[in-house]
């Protein structure tokens, strides 16, 4: 079983477009959407939710105002600026609290307790292309990395039960905790970039992250023809870093139309972009043999 993650560093370069198409092309696989704070894959694959699970977040501190003697010890020890001193009262800003419990342990009168925080849901679903695991992080919550590892683990469990050949993971943008959680230990990370200065800058950072965690990477250049000079620069960077460029997708209105219709582009039409994605998938399969 091989696990493939599609990432990009920069957002909006076409991760989900490619992931959804791989979902059509790959036989015998499990799909996973690890972009838990702005999940979009479900808009293309239309999963039917079979099982729903609560995702419990980190417990957060709260101050019992009746017991509190307003001594201010909690404010002094909190390194996250989460204790708000109104002049008359102390309370916890739940959005800043990281749940470290230091205030609770230091409070001389035991006025600080912990509140459980439900911060999301995750789902096991069925799509016409096969099983899919996805999630929704609670609004303005932290710990997306944790939720990502749950989604990946579940996808793996299903893949093992079904004897699946592939797990295809739609990754989040950026290089921080949800990205690292999506990336560690996969068999291949496909980096989708675009020939813009921003795309190139962000690709270099995500390549460094992948190297740090010893994950094999390959590159796909999306909308390569909007700036051929920059596309050449991506080729050159890839060559110098011994990264294979797996394909060049041209800019295409049909991609936007397919998203608007909610149909993976390889199913929506058979133009140049679709053909390129099909051959990219063939190269992915070949490279994982």
């Amino acid at each position: 079983m091989k696990e493939i993650v599609i990432i990009s560093g920069k957002g909006g370069t076409g991760k989900t477009t490619i992931t959804a198409s791989f979902g059509v092309l790959a036989k015998n696989k499990v799909m996973a959407d690890c972009d838990v704070d702005a999940a979009d894959l479900h808009l293309m694959l239309h999963p039917e939710i079979k099982e729903r699970f609560e995702f419990k977040g980190m417990s957060k501190a709260f101050i019992n105002q009746e017991k509190c003697t307003r001594c201010g010890a909690c404010e002094k020890v909190c390194r996250f600026d989460a204790i708000i001193n109104t002049g008359t009262n102390f309370y916890v800003n739940q959005l800043s609290c990281e749940g470290c419990r230091v205030c609770m342990n230091i409070c001389p009168v035991g006025a600080i307790g912990l509140e459980d925080d439900s911060n999301g849901e995750w789902y096991i679903s069925e799509t016409k292309y096969g099983p899919m695991v996805h999630a929704k992080l609670g609004i303005a919550e932290e710990n997306s990395g944790k939720l990502v590892s749950i989604v990946r683990q579940q996808a793996k469990n299903i893949a093992e039960e079904n004897g699946a050949d592939y797990i295809i993971v739609d990754g989040p943008p950026g290089i921080g905790c949800p990205v690292i959680s999506s990336l560690t230990g996969v068999d291949l990370a496909l980096i989708v970039t675009e020939p813009t200065f921003s795309g190139i800058h962000d690709m270099k950072r995500i390549v460094e992250v992948a190297n740090r965690f010893s994950v094999p990477v390959k590159v796909i250049i999306n909308k390569y023809n909007i700036n051929l000079e920059n596309s050449a620069a991506i080729e050159k960077f890839s060559e110098m870093n011994q990264i294979q460029v797996l394909g060049h997708m041209p800019f295409s209105e049909s991609v936007i139309e397919s998203i608007t219709k909610g149909i993976p582009v390889v199913e929506f039409c058979n133009d140049e972009v679709s053909k390129e994605i099909i051959s990219i998938w063939d190269r992915v399969v070949e490279s994982l043999k």
Binding site: A38, L95, L137, A140, E142, G174, G176, I259
Partner: peptide
């Protein structure tokens, strides 16, 4: 991008937030 802690930390205490989107 996103909706989790780095976004909250960035926009917190703003007087106004502009949300940029695309029609898809």
């Amino acid at each position: 991008p996103g909706t989790s802690c780095p976004v909250v930390e960035s926009v917190k205490n703003s007087d106004f937030t502009i949300l940029v989107t695309e029609p898809t």
